[in-house]
Write a protein that binds this DNA or RNA. Sequence first.
DNA 1: CGAGATATATTCGATGCCGAGCATTCGATA
DNA 2: TATCGAATGCTCGGCATCGAATATATCTCG
Lengths: 226, 226
Amino acid sequence: MAPRTRNNPLALAVLVQLWERPMHPYEISMTLRERRKEESVRLNFGSLYSVVESLEKHGLIEAASTERDGNRPTRTVYRVTDAGVTEAIDWLTDLVRDPVKEFPQFEAALSFLPVLAPDDALRLLRIRTEALRMNLTANDATREAARAQGLPELFELEGAYEAAMQRAELAFVEDLTSRIVNGTLAGVDLWRQLHDTLVHDGRVDPDEMAKAVAELEAAMGGPPAS
Amino acid sequence: MAPRTRNNPLALAVLVQLWERPMHPYEISMTLRERRKEESVRLNFGSLYSVVESLEKHGLIEAASTERDGNRPTRTVYRVTDAGVTEAIDWLTDLVRDPVKEFPQFEAALSFLPVLAPDDALRLLRIRTEALRMNLTANDATREAARAQGLPELFELEGAYEAAMQRAELAFVEDLTSRIVNGTLAGVDLWRQLHDTLVHDGRVDPDEMAKAVAELEAAMGGPPAS
DNA sequence: CGAGATATATTCGATGCCGAGCATTCGATA
DNA sequence: TATCGAATGCTCGGCATCGAATATATCTCG
């Protein structure tokens, strides 16, 4: 409905939890944690409460009761409304149907990689490779454990997806590393040359920089692919 | 330095641009656009100006001059400081070295997939497959065009990475689809059964829901792995 | 040469996000 | 039984984000 609430997937998680049964916010967060949803949906307290408030304002959930247990802070128990159920299904439908462009940090990093010295970059990429291998191993172990406990794979597709992405990134980084080493990546020669001639003590020679940039600019100018 | 500025990769992009030469914010944005960095770094005007302000406050960039061209709004030209160069290199180093956990929307969607009816999910996954194929084709074409224009691959690694991730997601979705169809995904039987017996008109039978949840809960309870 | 479209360049306010902090209760331990 | 720490449950303020709005200059085309 309101596209404004559609920003934070935590709101979707809240709707789904409340569809299962009415809860108060803290209980929602604990349930999500138990189900390991915190690994696929960014969850923190501040956001949770503002998301809940926003959902209520839009009529997607409503207060079912405000109980007070002894002298503890009052808890407001929420339930999902019909509009909320509809919204959850619509939203989920969109998320599954339409890929959305995202901006992983590593993609940004790659786009600036030539800023680093080639040998530094190589060293870092190798460390990354190791880290990715470890993450992947840990991820596999977690999933195997869940399977051993009797959780059908359908209920943990997130993990499988994450692992698939990790494997792909690992392969990419390994390939990139070796292509830098053996020089089959177009541009490495230029890269080394630049860092040899134009960077000294982290300071760039402006003239050399201008020349290099102009050269590359020529390769990007003109109509973009049409 | 201040981990606060490290949130938005746009700040890194600004530092890198200003390292090349001093510019005013609008010029930065146009340059980033020309170089197609807007595809790997989220860029919009509001953020750009606040990021610039923040960088200045932290001493990573400084105003070089405020020129006025005719009667157009005053432009402030910034230059990067020594601290800024150091910060850019450190930041980039970290980004290349350390994988960071991110939260792609599709991962969240997968974690709630059983909420949808199996046949609806299948239909949506197939549409996604098509969309992914198209994106991939477009991406490949763009990169080929850049190559044809003489841009060495080193200077467009972002695109190659994105393509690798797209291919991996495509493979994952295709595999998932077929495993749902042929029933080799553990849990599909339960999934179909649930949606047949417990959902009517988008309304859940609370008793049935409780029973099903309890069953799955058993499979997740206990000490998580280890 | 006048009108509208496009490019230049920034500001602003509404909203969202986040993590630290606060206040209470319960359980274990000495 | 006094105390320390963990769990429960929420609030608050600061900062980030974003898109729309603003204002002028230049280009274009009949």
